[in-house]
Design a protein around this nucleic acid. Structure first.
Length: 278
DNA sequence: ACTATTTCCTGGATGC
DNA sequence: TGCATCCAGGAAATAG
């Protein structure tokens, strides 16, 4: 499941290998597509654009594009556009050669000036593609690795929802998904069902630290490959071997040996240690 | 204004 | 062995 560390890993790989390349042509599949913008508009925006950079915003991949400036566009956005990819559960953006077999559930192929292809593959079609004719894509949620403790704490003030749900809420923090929410709460020794507003200053400080630590370590490890996740070069990550609670139901806690519990919160499975987390 | 629940989607695992 | 059912979950939509 691509969350912040996985998307960051993909973005870095794409930035390294396709930034500066030009999208020459685009093929978009026929079926009901995982598109937020009309297919024609996506194709029109991508074709002929130079990829100036690829970066991550929350769980989104953002391709910054440079096009031949049109007359009607505002000066600051002259010729600028963006291609935004949300990978959902099973989405992949892969760099491939035209000769390599096209995997099932390939929804978009962008042929690059360098002769390679960028392919968007997504079996379950939870992913979403969109384009913009400016450079203004943003998320309302804050970047977990950029906020300070005070702002981080203020996001949870007055919220009666479980802290697990609050961590998953992309309008508060952008990029944390089920894996890193569970791992952060374990490291902070906080139970997932605790009401967000009930956390003490000390607990918020521990959670802040834990979130940053977990995300940073996961990025270093190239992300967690639990189901389909691979980076832009098709390689798996390693952080799944460092998970302390996620996916470890009934296995012994790495700290105290108590079997890890699993409960459903807000429709998501939550893994935690009843002895270590309060 | 918040919060909780439902829905979308398909491959892989499980059960009879 | 084969077929049906369940499960995974991000985020938008819907309900309360």
């Amino acid at each position: 499941m691509p969350e912040l560390p996985e998307v960051e890993t993909i973005a870095r790989g794409l930035q390294r290998s396709v930034a500066g390349d030009v999208i020459e042509s685009v093929w978009i599949g026929k079926k009901p597509e995982p598109l937020k913008s009309p297919a024609q508009q996506i194709a029109r925006t991508l074709e002929g654009s130079r990829i100036s950079s690829v970066r991550r915003v929350g769980k989104h991949l953002v391709f910054d594009l440079q096009r031949t400036p049109g007359k009607k566009e505002r000066k600051q956005d002259a010729g600028r556009a963006q291609w935004i990819v949300h990978l959902g559960m099973t989405g992949q953006v892969l760099i491939a050669t035209p000769a390599s077999a096209i995997p099932p559930h390939t929804h978009l192929i962008a042929t690059l000036g360098s002769g390679r292809e960028l392919r968007f593959v997504d079996p379950r079609r939870f992913g979403r593609l969109q384009v913009r004719s400016d450079a203004g894509f943003q998320t309302s949620g804050r970047e977990p690795l950029e906020v300070d403790l005070e702002l981080f704490s203020s996001l949870f003030r007055g919220r009666n929802t479980p802290i697990k749900s609050a961590l998953l809420n992309q309008k508060l923090l952008a990029g944390i998904g089920n894996i890193y929410a569970d791992e952060s709460l374990f490291r902070a020794a906080i139970r997932p069902r605790r009401r967000a507003a009930s956390l003490t200053r000390a607990e918020l400080a521990r959670l802040y630290r834990a979130v940053r630590q977990v995300l940073a370590e996961a990025i270093t490890a190239g992300g967690s490959s639990v189901s389909d996740y691979v980076n832009a070069d098709g390689e798996a990550g390693m952080f799944q071997f460092a998970h302390r609670v996620y996916g470890r139901e009934a296995e012994p806690c790495v700290t105290c040996g108590t079997p890890i519990k699993r409960v459903v919160i807000a429709g998501r499975s939550s893994h935690w240690c009843a002895k270590c987390q309060k």
